[in-house]
Write a protein that binds this DNA or RNA. Structure first.
Lengths: 337, 337
DNA sequence: TTCATTTACGAAAACGATTAAGAAGAACTT
DNA sequence: AAGTTCTTCTTAATCGTTTTCGTAAATGAA
């Protein structure tokens, strides 16, 4: 590996001069700097990240804390595509992305310790139990943190606008003439709470009354539990005309139940999903759903995190809402009153 | 941050002694070592990865080269779940995982340069254009490399046993009495070639003749193209009784076509997928498919790569085949002759 | 006791970069 | 001409480890 020393020798200058020239410091002569850069390129010089990190305490490395109890993790398209976009933006801005775990080899260490060990310049926290002590410790540390879909005091958070998403979805469904709307929601998280609240509020605003029996609990990304909830809804004396699912994938469970009962979508019953994953638009009829803008969420998370790293003074913690977009699809029937 | 120096002062020994004690060198007295370790823990000592890397040229960092033209990348469950398993095993053995890209900030650099810059101890190469000059350069470099589903000379490769997978699948279908089996395959890659070859050979062995019209080309992970191929197959005078798809997800496109034409699975037509993703078993009827063992593939890739890093002398490049497992499902009908 | 061997530890030189402080010459002021 | 300021470059310290080599004490052998 060619080092600055090699370049300095070849150019007949000191290592310091090489360092400054390569980093664009101002106190190096124009022609000298140019020459050094040329030689460096010719010799195939690459900075030694470890040495630089040791000296500067900056690694240009971003940590991704991405844990989930379900183990479905990356399998969930919302997260994988969010991560994709985060990674792309981070790379554009000159940062690499490393996963943070709670052990190095055999010995367990807290997330914070792992971050410190790897000297991550910042961390994005996604999809995990935000109340776990380990996570709280990390978030409250001196390391710049951006969270996704969860707000910690004083920390920047990127939030998919679940309230708006549900509002738009319910509104659309209501516009199609539905008054009996059932809602199957996911397990209890802050996101779920927002969705439920938005569901109730929107219905109220629209003058739609929601019987308690129309709101069922299930699990995210779990078709079986949504299937069960669907069965319960269908066995009601007064059936809903439209069922909203926790997410597009879970809907697949409900779909099976509807199939079994010979209920056609949307003729016999209307349905809506959430997330807007690839699959949802492959289905026939295309699923009515609302697309969370993972592209922007991931990009924004990277941008904010890096801003926060590079301008700690200027950057202010804020909560950023990213709106979703309704995808009408064809799974909600227009009902004429 | 507490450093070895802090510990050495507190313990009244030299930094060298601390280093040796913490690394379990033999030339330190039992009680001294024990005491040093205790103090280190008390003080919350964490090794400085950069300093260590600088000195040892080892980062305990593994690169993942994961590019795909389709941009579907992580969205494909085969890859996301493989990566998950790779990551888990790497972490178990004390390595972190970083993505490799072809640029740092604005300036482009080759994959190899990126690896060198980050000083990755090794790289796993997945899902990319294996013939791109950049990739070839990396694979032929001095950096330990393990490839997945592609063999380079002299390099360790982990291969999903596509030949066996297809053989088992075709055999199963034939056992159910089918003699008219159509095969929609993905775009031209080495994996695809193996699958096609295995398809033809197995059919031959089973005495099944395959008309040219029964073999169609489509794209992986692309329901639309599989839908088109399905349409073509159904318009044949002599229709196949069973259609094999490039992958489970693409099958969803074919499924729509079958639906439109009012063909029931498996009563009117049998179908089979490939991969064994979560979705395939949610469908009703459950899809007959063959599960690629991403868990083992990912784990094995990490293990081999790390072996190769830690024992460069001993470890020998080899191709490791990981068998898949047939999932019978219910989408292939038993035909009585 | 005396010499050889082992054991336990320390001193110091790296690894490859960054950066504060200083120095020498050039250029400008008056 | 003398002093001042700029420009450009160097010296040297430093980041936190690892590791080689050396040495002093302890142990063993004779």
């Amino acid at each position: 590996m060619v080092s600055m020393k090699d370049i300095s020798i070849k150019c007949g200058v000191s290592v310091a001069t090489v360092s400054k020239a390569l980093n664009g410091q101002s106190d190096i002569g124009k022609k000298t700097a140019q020459h050094i850069r040329k030689v460096a390129k010719e010799m195939g010089y690459l900075p030694n990240a470890a040495a630089r990190a040791l000296k500067t305490n900056r690694t240009n490395n971003l940590g991704v804390l991405f844990v989930d109890n379900m183990q479905s993790g990356l399998m969930h398209e919302y997260f994988s595509s969010l991560l994709n976009s985060f990674k792309a933006e981070a790379e554009l801005r000159g940062y690499d992305v490393t996963f943070i775990s709670n052990h190095i080899g055999q010995s367990t260490m807290s997330y914070l310790e792992h971050c410190r060990y790897r000297a991550c310049d910042g961390v994005v926290v996604v999809c995990c139990d935000f109340n776990a002590p380990d996570v709280v410790e990390l978030v409250q540390s001196e390391i710049p943190v951006v969270t996704i879909d969860h707000v910690f005091n004083e920390k920047t958070a990127i939030l998919s606008n679940n309230v708006q998403c549900i509002r738009d979805l319910v509104t659309y469904i209501a516009e199609q003439g539905h008054r009996k709307i059932a809602f199957i929601h996911g397990e209890d998280t802050s996101v779920t709470q927002k969705r439920i609240a938005s569901f109730y509020r929107t219905c109220q605003e629209l003058g739609i009354t929601v019987p308690e029996t129309y709101v069922k609990s299930a699990l995210y990304h779990n078709p079986a539990s949504s299937a069960e909830a669907t069965r319960a809804l269908l066995s009601l004396a007064d059936r809903p005309t439209c069922i909203m699912y926790p997410d597009d994938f879970s809907f697949m469970g409900g779909r099976n139940v509807l199939d079994e009962m010979n209920l056609k979508i949307p003729e016999d019953i209307s349905v809506a999903g959430f997330d807007g994953i690839y699959l949802s638009q492959i289905l026939q009829p295309a699923l009515t759903t609302v697309r969370q803008d993972t592209l922007i969420i991931g990009r924004e998370a990277a941008d904010r995190l890096i801003d926060c790293i590079e301008n700690p003074k200027v950057s202010v913690a804020e909560q950023i809402m990213i709106d979703g977009r309704l995808i009408p699809g064809q799974s909600v029937k227009r009902i004429d009153e």
